[in-house]
Design a protein around this nucleic acid. Structure first.
Lengths: 326, 326
DNA sequence: CTGAAAGCGCTTACAG
DNA sequence: CTGAAAGCGCTTACAG
């Protein structure tokens, strides 16, 4: 290659890397030779020499025993935004889906496969989060979304504001007896923050907050369904429902329909996450959506920042109005 | 590191790579030293020397002007499955979302960032596919899903069988006037294959196939909505609708509900893609779903196989029964 | 502005 | 079974 352009290896390197100290004529010659030979710089060798990878690793945690195709779409959107944010900064994204303990791996930075690591995914996989919590102790180049602990570096939705916005909207729609559904002791820390937002919203409207409704079920959808069943069974009076996540709200919408409870006529419903699926439910689901692009950017920035500049980041949220509230 | 274990660099390398020619005692000593020092093999340097990257690049093509968070969930599922398939074979996955011409990039193999490239995503981004069609000319380590051309290496759903299954189910549900909705001249080649399956299914049932219904609209959902509007406007008699993709079917379901056409009472509806969103539509959407895990495996295998072993692959599909057909 | 040389951190023939 | 040496393909001081 150097031969073809009639220059040294160093010059080829400088020309292709866009160095300032190269004559335009030389650069053109080199570029033409590269074109003719179909030459591309070996990124691996370049990175080895430069000592940086230009790559960010992203791991998506799934539920044990479930395939990657069945990940909550929320995390897919977040993954997409994070990849896009990496690209914005000129970084590649190395992604892996991890659910089973034997596949847990987070030493991307130590192995020099990446300059930073972002971890997202379900908070319900405790073993996975324990593993990555340890990784945060080895390395500063790490950022979490939705981790079930507070002692590491994370990025989260502005859950307090989201909860307040949801309640305010429900109240504006005429609701007074609003209940929050979600386990506030859940591994998903964001749920209790959303409940706090709910409480503040209720107080601001001069209403009394109920304790949170927790329900079982093998996944969020089933939990939402069961919450409705329980509320109805125990004769709770309610005209507004705020769910800790959209998947629950979607299950609840099904259950409400099955029991002929009119939405939004008899009860207004709001979820959290901004799932695209909510566009097609019956009725379409009003939801609190985080700014995905911003979430991706903060995640990447945090993972790349290293120790000292670490901050706990909040991503702004907004209410997406659909038909499930009057 | 070699010092700490009291052996040579070569021995460290062999011990950690699991070479057979190493004493158990030596290996243990090396592993312990690595543990103590928090040493990890530099994957970049190892790969450089070995001449292989252990990585597969995956690019997801999006619609120009649309963020990564708004990609059709079908491609997210396919992405997840492809990453999982790569992991199964011990490969890392380098993923990027590309929509605008200035960000098109496919020289991962030439730059030695990956050993193979798989390209998936919307067929509607013509400029992107033109670009990657050219890449297929440079490199054999490439595989496409849903490419709008037939002259390169691709993996697709078994669309013929899918179309037949859909029609058979609609017929079993009592439908006789079944119409196919989707542009068979579309850039999405799979649509015309699905139409062919529809035609064969109709013939097998002794029914006469209608010409396909094509409709405009800025995205698939709008197209589905408009198709219903048009069918009703022109007074077509129909009791079964088979859509070329779920997104269209979802839009159609909304439009049918808005016009008080009962589903599945007055008309049975089936889509194609296996979108999770279809679980929550009203009614839940019956759909033809490809085997995602298998799709991922075939994509990875094809991208890695290289020139001679190239084959055009079909992924098996199955009918997912939900409530939109009687 | 350009070239010769060293070196990034590994793996792998080649000896022993 | 293990070590010394070469070399993977680049980039970057160091000279000129």
């Amino acid at each position: 290659m150097a031969e073809r352009a009639g220059v040294s290896q160093s010059t080829v390197s400088r020309a292709l890397a866009g160095s300032e100290t190269i004559t335009e004529a030389t650069r053109r010659r080199v570029e033409q030779a590269a074109e003719e030979l179909g030459y591309h710089v070996n990124a691996r060798a370049a990175g080895l020499r430069k000592g940086q990878t230009g790559t960010i690793a992203i791991v998506v945690i799934g539920r044990a025993g479930q395939g990657a195709a069945r990940i909550n779409p929320f995390y897919y959107s977040l993954l997409g935004s994070t990849c896009a944010a990496a690209a914005e900064r000129g970084f590649e994204a190395l992604v892996s889906f991890q659910a089973e303990p034997e596949e847990f791996f987070g030493h991307y930075v130590a192995r020099r496969q990446a300059d930073g690591l972002v971890v997202i995914g379900t908070a319900t996989n405790g073993a996975a989060w324990d593993y990555f919590r340890d990784r945060a102790k080895d390395s500063d180049e790490i950022a979490f979304w939705g981790s079930p602990f507070d002692d590491a570096v994370w990025v989260r939705s502005d859950n307090l504001s989201g909860g307040q916005q949801a309640v305010a909207r429900l109240v504006a729609g005429g609701a007074r007896d609003i209940v929050f559904v979600g386990d506030t002791n859940s591994t998903q820390r964001q749920f209790s923050e959303r409940y706090d937002g709910y409480c503040q919203g209720m107080a601001a409207a001069g209403l009394t907050a109920h304790p949170p409704i927790e329900s079982g079920g093998e996944d969020r959808v089933a939990q939402g369904r069961e919450a409705v069943t329980r509320l109805l069974a125990q004769g709770t009076v309610f005209d507004g429902l705020f769910f800790a996540c959209d998947a629950m709200a979607l299950g609840a919408l099904e259950e409400l329909a099955a029991r002929d409870v009119a939405v939004p006529g008899a009860v207004g419903v709001i979820g959290f996450d901004g799932l695209g699926t909510g566009e097609f439910s019956s009725p379409p689901l009003t939801t609190v959506e985080p700014d995905f692009a911003q979430a991706g950017r903060l995640l990447v920035q945090t993972a790349l920042a290293g120790a000292d500049e670490k901050i706990e980041c909040r991503v702004p949220v907004r209410l997406v109005e659909r038909a499930s509230v009057g």
